[in-house]
Design a protein around this nucleic acid. Structure first.
Length: 465
RNA sequence: GGCGACGUAGCCAAGUGGUAAGGCAAGGGUCUGCAAAACCCUCAUUCGCGGGUUCGAAUCCCGCCGUCGCCUCCA
């Protein structure tokens, strides 16, 4: 099976072919670190983590670059508000985001570049664009000359004329054309600034990604990703900058994720309708979030609500139910083991077919749930642990490709375990003596403490809820 | 106004020409002292609405209605 990926550039699903055999160069736009990150950012990181994991599952080596934008107007404004140095503020939020990524089980990128560390490369690139007549300096600023780049608008499907007509563009008198955008901004007093051929200043937002790509991945990459709100102008401008300079097609596949919505609107800092990653993780385990993201296709919008979170919680529990140990029985039908092994093979094929089709994670999950049912059936039928374990291993592996941790130890349970075991033992005696009231009291009180007791044939087991 | 998505059961959500995956919830049953979990059964003759193409459409075409995104910083 060949992997197909939807390419924003062509608006089609295309067979995936890398520039260099077996090696994927992937760049994903990370957050601008001026405030706490919200679950929308987390969704994007999780989606590209799943893409990366699947590519690795397929045998590719993946060079994965995710940038942090740490020089930007909002950072400066926010730092001024808080009386903090802009770069320090950015550093603080960057560390926080990094911790979130670890909590969310997002594999570390190969490199995490940041704008403030790439100034030399950025300046060099702007100079190159000026030399080629694609950029011009005006009073310490440098602008990109959009009219000189013939492919401008090919990603977003916009024409420069449309943008000039747009009444929402603020006309800057110094620009040759209202559609031109800033590559370098002259420093105003008190702003972070670096020396440049055009005087002290700082890079515009779009140029940093072009520069980092060039430096860490080369002039042509396989996958360029980010939220679909970045298609225009950010990615359109990146294409203009990079291709303007190199004359070669920049990214082969442009991959964009849909937006997370809250109460019918895009979750965003400017709208103020957001749930921070921190808030979410205080109340739920990280895999619940991942489950939520996996349950809908990455390109579509995802509406966040308590209901949807709860459904993800329960679905994850169901996935985990399959990992319970076998209860072998001599009466196990001889064909049960064979049937389970066949189901496991079938699941892998279905899973791969779904993922090969533009990372159809809801489809992939449906195959995992089919395997869950088959495993539970086989356990009820009494197959031995070896047979059950083999199927469970497949489930664990494929869930792992999606980044789900099915048997992650529950926080806090280790310390409590001996005491819970003691209570179960006492309750066992009570049950033998048919003291149901007391036995049930122990079970109910433990349930209130989120410790769920389950009486099975092989004795009582417990789990954290 | 321009560009682009989307509208599938009570909820979430796959499916893009051959007769509706999966999850949650709900109801019934098996198991259990009772539960929980698991298992079995039930749960969209139908895919926003109206036309059209076709032997055949949720899937293609046209129109309409509705929701959302981008066009300005945004994952």
């Amino acid at each position: 099976m060949t992997l197909k990926i939807y390419n924003t550039l062509t608006r089609k699903k295309e067979p995936f072919e890398t520039i260099e055999p077996g090696h994927v160069r992937m760049y994903v736009c990370g957050p601008t670190v001026y405030d706490k990150a919200h679950v929308g950012h987390a969704m994007s990181s999780v989606i590209f983590d799943v893409i990366r994991r699947y590519l690795e599952y397929k045998g590719y080596k993946v060079s994965h670059v995710m940038n942090y934008t740490d020089v930007e107007d909002k950072i400066i404004a926010r730092a001024r508000e808080l009386g903090e140095e802009p770069l320090e503020l950015a550093e603080r939020y960057m560390r926080e985001y990094d911790q979130h990524l670890r909590d969310l089980n997002v594999l570390p990128a190969t490199v995490y570049p940041r704008a403030s560390h790439e100034i030399d490369q950025i300046i060099e690139m702007i100079q190159g664009l000026v030399e080629r007549g694609l950029a011009y300096a005006v009073g310490g600023d440098v602008y990109y000359r959009v009219a000189r780049f013939k492919g401008y608008g090919k990603l977003s499907g916009r024409r420069p004329e449309d943008m000039r007509a747009g009444a929402r563009l603020q006309v800057d008198e110094r620009k040759e054309d209202p559609a031109d955008f800033a590559l370098w901004k002259a420093a105003k007093p008190g702003e972070p600034a670096w020396d440049s051929p055009w005087g002290p200043g700082r890079p515009g937002w779009h140029i940093e990604c072009s520069a980092m790509n060039l430096r860490y991945l080369g002039d042509q990459i396989d996958i360029h990703g980010g939220g679909n709100d970045l298609i225009f102008p950010h990615h359109e401008n990146e294409i203009a900058q990079t291709e303007g300079l190199t004359g070669k097609p920049f990214a082969r596949y442009w991959v964009h994720n849909g937006m997370l919505q809250l109460a019918g609107e895009k979750m965003s800092k400017s709208l103020g309708n957001l749930i921070t990653i921190e808030q979410f993780l205080q109340e739920h385990e990280p895999d619940v979030f991942r489950m939520l993201v996996l349950n809908s296709h990455y390109r579509g919008p995802l509406t966040f609500s308590d209901d949807v979170v709860m459904q993800a919680e329960r679905a994850l529990e169901r996935l985990r139910s399959a990992l319970r140990p076998a209860s072998p029985s001599p009466q196990a039908p001889p064909k049960a083991a064979e049937a389970l092994a066949a189901k496991a093979r079938e699941t892998r094929l279905g899973f791969e077919a779904a993922m090969d089709d533009d990372f159809n994670t809801p489809g992939a999950l449906s195959h995992l749930f089919d395997l869950v049912r088959a495993i539970n059936q086989a356990r009820d039928a009494g197959v031995d642990q070896e047979t059950l374990g083999a199927a469970q291993e497949v489930l664990r592996e494929l869930a792992g490709v999606l980044g789900l941790r099915l048997d992650r130890p529950q926080a806090g349970s280790r310390e409590a375990a001996p005491y819970i075991d003691l209570l179960i033992e006492v309750r066992e005696r009570l049950r033998e003596a048919k003291h149901w009231e007391l036995a049930d009291l122990i079970r109910d009180r433990l349930t209130e403490l989120d410790v769920v007791l389950e009486d099975g044939k092989a004795g009582t087991t417990w789990r954290m809820r």
